[in-house]
């Protein structure tokens, strides 16, 4: 016994050293990746956003450092409208997805019988459809004189009454909701699965109503996980391109679309970078929240 202990005492520090070196080796690729593809581009975008380009009558450029791009972001009606529009779309889509996904997740968690099982199989479908295809499908489906409008008109709806959904904010929200629903539902389901049946049964035994169980047990216990899902989706919608590009209005534009236009069509990489920083700051709010939640979890 004593021999074993002493042997352990000798071996242990060596093992620790080795595992430390292995740890560094394991972290190195991801650190390298982060540096090359995240840190450097972010720093570059930030420096670019402080570069101001002036143009003379003949079209020659001169460059200087300044805050003009940010001033333009704040004062230009078009750009300001784009920022507000992006936030509104993200908040609306996330709120709607959250409500629907929560109901589906509840049904999957507590529902019994064939309808819950059917729901459990079908809700995942949009996860396997690329956003480009979903967007084009939504256009043909929801356009004026499209599929839905056609059916409603056959049922007696007068021509021209069907609201403008495609090329409008409604089109973006509907498609984002449709695309994000499975992910949010999967996440909420796993959060709800963590709540043990015994907790709910014991509450029921002492006479709690379903509403009371939901209000005082299910909701508080699922809140931290659910908010992480909300954070993820918010980040996804705020930086999205395909859906707002194909289904959105001509103006205002979501930042993802506007950024691409400024970069490739208007040849204004400096304004584009400033918008990128704006997206980055908006995301940062969500990211800080996410990191704090993760930290709390680990402490727990």
């Amino acid at each position: 016994m004593a021999v074993v202990t002493s042997a352990r005492a000798v071996v242990r520090p060596r093992r620790l050293d080795r595992s430390r070196a292995a740890g560094v080796l394991l972290v190195l690729p991801s650190l390298l990746y982060l540096t090359l593809f995240v840190f450097i581009p972010v720093i570059k975008a930030i420096t670019t956003s402080f570069t101001v380009r002036d143009r003379d009558d003949a079209g020659n450029y001169t460059y200087r450092v300044g805050l003009d791009n940010y001033a333009q972001l704040a004062t230009s009606e078009t750009l300001r409208a784009n920022v507000i529009f992006t936030v509104l779309i993200a908040v609306t889509s996330v709120a709607i997805v959250f409500c629907i996904a929560y109901v589906i997740a509840l049904a999957l968690r507590f529902g019994r019988g064939p309808s819950a099982r059917f729901l459990g199989r079908i809700y995942i479908v949009p996860l396997f459809i690329p956003s480009v295809i979903a967007s084009y499908a939504m256009i043909t489906f929801l356009a004026n004189h499209g599929f839905v409008d056609g059916i409603l008109q056959a049922l007696g709806l007068p021509d021209g009454v069907f609201p403008k959904i495609v090329f409008d904010w409604k089109g973006i929200v509907i498609t984002q909701v449709w695309l994000s629903l499975p992910f949010m539902t999967v996440l909420l389901s796993s959060v709800l699965l963590e709540i043990s049946d015994s907790l709910i049964e014991s509450a029921r035994d002492v006479g709690a109503s379903s509403w009371q169980i939901f209000r005082h047990i299910v909701l508080p216990l699922s809140a931290p996980g659910a908010l992480i899902g909300v954070t993820f989706m918010f980040l996804g919608v705020i930086g999205g391109f395909t859906v707002p590009y194909l289904l959105g209005p001509n103006a205002p534009q979501m930042l993802g679309v506007s950024m691409v236009y400024y970069m490739t069509n208007y040849f204004e990489p400096y304004i584009a970078s400033t918008q990128a920083v704006a997206i980055f700051l908006l995301s940062l709010v969500a990211a800080v929240y996410y990191v704090r939640q993760q930290f709390k979890r680990e402490v727990r």
Partner: peptide, 17 residues
Amino acid sequence: GTYGQDMQRLWHEKVAS
């Protein structure tokens, strides 16, 4: 060229919005 870039940007600022 530059005319094209400006035309597209100005259209967005003055016509689309």
